[in-house]
């Protein structure tokens, strides 16, 4: 079979298999499948789309070992401030996305700038910046956050086709950025070895700022889609904002794994879709939200254990073969030595 076809089949196997298993379980329990109306399809696609965008945002920094704990706060700040200014200007619809993106870029850029200036570890910096960013939308809106209820012209943000197009455009953009640009090439070099990359002339600081900027922009697009669907996005304090972003680590990591047969962007879309189908199935099986979250996180742990140990059996087998070969050689040498001794004695 053609390698390309094989890769496509392997990639698609994840959502198809999960859909098959969950559909069967739901049918056994309720008598109908996971999908009983268009609302189910829309719900899965919307959630998968938002999850993909957040996972792609996380990937910009996490693949270089940087966990930005202020990403959730940037999402709140960019979405709420961008959306509020849009409302003040009497704009709606796609403009909400444009403003959220612009402010997301701004907060991401400032966080990246703070990172390269202070050079504080990303997680520690993320806590500090998160504390600051959360306050800005809170103070800007008097603690109310962004309210889109009753606002005309926002229907497009809830349109399933628009979300699909948005998700695909972002995924293509990310794929091109990572695989066909100098920035992506340099990012891969930095992921390999930062010191070697720096010594070979790559500006690691500029690259990090760009990563933070793109991540900030993407989380705010995800934030605006969520706000449009839920008609609001509350401003919160206490660093609770990072939960939304860190919960998308699973699709990001699974996406990187599935991406081995295509690329990271396609892998992330497929991973987000797979996880959404699984979660939707659990909801249909009447699992509560905390139970669904617990199962999801449990699976994530198992997946990480698999990733960390998938080579262990191969390594052990190689080691076993090496020891067997050494023993065999030793025995052969001993035999030859004995033969030589016998010959010299004769």
């Amino acid at each position: 079979m053609n390698k390309k076809v094989k890769n496509i089949l392997k990639t698609l196997a994840f959502p198809v298999l999960v859909f098959g298993i969950m559909d069967l379980l739901v049918r056994l329990k309720t008598g109908h499948g996971i999908i009983s109306s268009m609302i189910d399809v829309q719900s899965i696609i919307r959630n998968a789309g938002i999850s993909t965008i957040l996972a792609l945002a996380l990937a910009f920094n996490l693949t270089s070992g940087r966990l930005d704990l202020s990403l959730g706060a940037q999402r709140l700040a960019g979405t709420i401030i961008g959306g509020s200014i849009c409302q003040m200007l009497g704009l709606s619809g796609v403009w909400l996305l444009v403003f959220a993106l612009a402010f997301g870029f701004l907060f991401g850029f400032l966080t990246g700038l703070a990172f390269v200036i202070t050079r504080v570890p990303p997680m520690v910096l993320g806590v500090g910046m998160g504390l600051i960013w959360e306050v800005i939308p809170f103070a800007f809106t008097g603690g109310k956050g962004l309210n889109l209820y009753g606002m005309q012209g926002n229907a497009i943000l809830n349109n399933t086709y628009f979300i699909i197009i948005g998700m695909v455009v972002i995924a293509i953009f990310c794929a091109l950025l990572m695989n066909n640009t100098r920035f992506g090439y340099e990012l891969k070099a930095i992921q390999g070895n930062q010191l070697i990359a720096q010594n070979s002339g790559i500006n690691i600081f500029k690259n990090a700022v760009i990563c933070y900027t793109f991540a900030g922009g993407l989380v705010c697009i995800g934030g605006m889609f969520t706000a449009a669907y839920e008609t609001q996005l509350l401003a919160g304090l206490g660093l609770a904002s990072n939960g939304v972003v860190t919960s998308n680590m699973f699709p990001m990591m699974l996406g990187a794994f599935i991406g081995l047969w295509s690329n990271d962007a396609i892998g992330t879309i497929v991973a987000a879709l797979t996880i959404q189908i699984f979660q939707y199935g659990l909801t249909q099986l009447e699992f509560s939200t905390p139970n669904t979250n617990a199962i999801n996180q449990g699976l994530f742990v198992l997946f990480l254990v698999f990733l960390a140990n998938k080579e262990i059996f191969k390594i052990k087998a190689r080691e076993k073969a090496r020891i067997a070969e050494a023993r065999e050689k030793k025995a052969r040498m001993a035999e030859e030595k004995a033969k030589l001794a016998a010959e010299s004695a004769n």
Binding site: V127, G128, L131, I132, V135, I136, A139, G143, G238
Partner: peptide
């Protein structure tokens, strides 16, 4: 104002 305290905490922290 209580909402600004968190930001001040963040700035001092950094």
């Amino acid at each position: 104002d209580a909402s600004y305290i968190q930001a001040i905490r963040g700035i001092i922290f950094l």
